[in-house]
Computed example of a mutant assay.
Amino acid sequence: MTAALEPGALLRGLEVGPVAHGGHFVARHEGRVVFVRHALTGELVDVRVTEVSKRFARADAVTVHRASPHRVEPPCPIAGRCGGCDFQHVEPAHARELKRQVVAELLGHLAGYAFTGQVEEVPPSPLGWRRRMRYQLDDAGRPGLRAHRSREVVVLPEGGCRIADEGIALPPPDAGRPGAEVLGVVSADGPAFLLPDTGATVTEQVGELRYRVAASGFWQAHRNAASVLVERVLDGLAPRDGEVALDLYCGVGLFAQALDARGARVWGIEGDRTAVELARRNVPAGRFQAGDVARRLDRVPERADLVVLDPPRVGAGAAVIAAVAARRPRAIAYVACDPAALGRDLRTAAGLGYEPSSVTAHDLFPLTHHVECVAILEPR
């Protein structure tokens, strides 16, 4: 008797197809699409259904009857239960190939752009790379991480989190009260464990540039992510002395300070008011606005030579892309943590006369499905 497609159901003998955006792999059950986690293309698996919608279902692979040659033993004993590392079962080089396939498919489908590059490995990889962690303490005060799409706390294994920098891999026993959240941060000041509501700041360094950053605020998690992205953006924009540059979604001024150091006159916009206050300290010569980027663009110059876009996962959106294109910059650097959002925004930009001269992809999140891209756009 065929199992019903409902949460909790066990579906046996599914043939796993290609990788999909979001770390899933496509399988089918009686013609319905099932997005399967913890599987690999070509495998024969049994899956447990976790979610059902009108158009598709989601499931986790629970038994592998025919394994892919790219399957490996996860380095962490809680892999598959913790919600963090969904590619621990994948050989690292093949994980980068899977990400390349996703980037190429999405940019081709959404933007008509032929991505021919590779996803570049960034050391350290695949372990010990993460310098910012959010741990949850369970009801007994034991540190752990959230399960996938759940409030459940999965207690850390002996030795702590495998992808975290060793300085913050395991919070101390007195890190906080049961049920609390604890931040682990490694910065230029060294490793520290903090509660998120302390308002503490830390120092980050990229080359010769130093930044004050809220301990609980946004900063790239990978040890070398900020330096890789700054280098890629500066190489692509080639800023000239005296040029006007906009840093949109600027955070604490990562790109703004790098552009300022090259002689550009910088304006920035960021929604987080604490980050804007820090950006003003980090880049005293810059001018920064706090608020929604689309609504604050009327407060920056109507003409710009260079623009950096580093939006959240949903992307910049059509209104922001149109406002940027209207300023007729000679180059735009778009830093994207989601290739689908990047594809949509590249399609919008193409309709406004801007096309990518290059797109690079960087593996800043080893052992996960996430990938960072940098697109350099120039007038057609």
Score class of each variant (00 low, 15 high):
Leu127Ile: 13
Glu152Tyr: 00
Ile321Cys: 04
Pro126Lys: 12
His38Leu: 12
Arg12Lys: 15
Ala221Thr: 12
Ala215Gln: 10
Gly291Gln: 12
Ala304Val: 13
His70Ala: 10
Pro356Asn: 10
Gly176Met: 06
Val155Ser: 02
Leu5Gln: 00
Pro178Tyr: 10
Glu105Asp: 15
Val119Pro: 03
Thr116Met: 02
Arg37Gly: 03
Gly271Pro: 15
Gly8Thr: 05
Arg130Ala: 07
Gly207Ile: 09
Glu302Ala: 15
Arg162Cys: 07
Gly84Phe: 06
Gly207Tyr: 10
Ala318His: 13
Asp139Ser: 15
Glu105Leu: 13
Leu127Asn: 07
Arg330Val: 03
Val371His: 01
Asn224Gln: 14
Phe255Lys: 02
Leu234Thr: 05
Glu181Gly: 12
Glu166Cys: 05
Arg100Cys: 05
Asp292Val: 14
Glu97Lys: 02
Ala215Lys: 06
Arg149Phe: 06
Arg48Ser: 11
Arg28Gln: 08
Ala319Phe: 01
Gly159Ser: 05
Leu367Phe: 10
Asp174Gln: 02
Val186Trp: 00
Gln220Phe: 06
Gly199Trp: 11
Gly190Cys: 06
Val230Tyr: 04
Val47Pro: 10
Gly315Gln: 07
Glu43Asn: 00
Ala350Leu: 11
Arg32Asn: 00
Gly286Tyr: 08
Gly141Ala: 01
Arg380Lys: 13
Tyr135Ile: 02
Ala214Met: 04
Glu97Thr: 12
Leu248His: 13
Asp46Val: 10
Cys85Leu: 06
His38Pro: 00
Val103Asp: 13
Ala200Trp: 03
Phe288Val: 14
Val62Asn: 09
